[in-house]
Design a protein around this nucleic acid. Structure first.
Lengths: 155, 155
DNA sequence: GGCTAAATTAGAATAACTCTAGAAATGCAA
DNA sequence: TTGCATTTCTAGAGTTATTCTAATTTAGCC
């Protein structure tokens, strides 16, 4: 197992406004995390990171999106790629709906609203939630992260 | 859909120390939530609630336990029963490990430690966590619950 | 006890992944 | 560049957790 000491920031549209050498950014980013910049990985990276907003995808939804955009990528590759990107710190896996794995392009410290009706997830920046007191982690262990899900329902 | 206004407390060993009429408690509790006290439901209720401690089970683990205790219950019935108990407010469904559904016999307001190595879940009473500031729920919705998972790893 | 609705069950079906093994693409070295 | 070792991709099979289905059994009531 490898521990990431410096988490790379995710791709962003901002960094590529000029659109010269459209894939250069993505290629470098993938190289940085030791993933060969293949056609498939580049296509998925584009969909995930070059839209300029934070996204919550499942393998299923991303695969569908890739198909629509004309990229030929198998579902197995989408699964592989999502896990590789997660291991590389480019994505974060989130657990809300048992039986489905969501990936979040926002890798900053943050939390989520979860709509109980629609299952819709929305980011909450970490600074909007203040936790005043936390219990001590059990002996021999330390807190690695605090995940907060605020469940909301219709008023 | 039915909204529960008065959540029944879960069963507890404390309430049945004398052991007279061993199933009376369970039978009444099931009646209260409009579930016929069948052989299977009683067996599962006993396993879940009469051990005097809070438990985290999956359908799989509970089914196995039932088998060992000599109760003949099908896995389908375990699934059905866990969901019925949850709907009746006797259990709470928790999401931590995508791909598996856990049920918690502790239905009080509380949170969880999640050990990233073993997947082990531990309850944290609500009073041990203080949330000082929460964001407003989006328009037209209200906060129904705040779930906090403190992920821990080896030190 | 007998009837009716509810509950249980085995096994089939489904959903979301994961694995496998062969084909294709990548990148390094000459 | 070309060849080759290695990585990556893919279709399809396999797995796991769960739900569905339709037939059987059981509970509660007269």
């Amino acid at each position: 197992m490898t521990i990431m000491h410096t988490r790379p920031r995710a791709f962003s549209m901002m960094e590529n406004t000029m659109n010269e050498r459209p894939f250069a950014q993505a290629i470098n980013r993938l190289r940085e995390v030791d993933l060969r910049p293949t056609r498939q990985r580049l296509a998925l990276a584009k969909l995930l990171f070059e839209r300029g907003c934070d996204r919550h995808v499942t393998a299923e939804t991303l695969h569908e999106e890739a198909q629509k955009s004309g990229a030929r990528v198998s579902l197995a590759t989408v699964y592989n790629t999502l896990h590789q990107f997660t291991d590389a710190g480019l994505l974060r896996e989130i657990m809300v709906d048992s039986g489905k794995t969501y990936f979040d392009t926002n890798i900053d410290d943050h939390h989520h609203f979860l709509c109980e009706r629609s299952g819709q997830l929305t980011d909450i920046p970490a600074h909007m939630v203040t936790v005043a007191e936390l219990p001590q982690a059990p002996d021999g262990s330390k807190i690695s992260r605090v995940d907060i899900v605020i469940r909301i329902c219709d008023q």
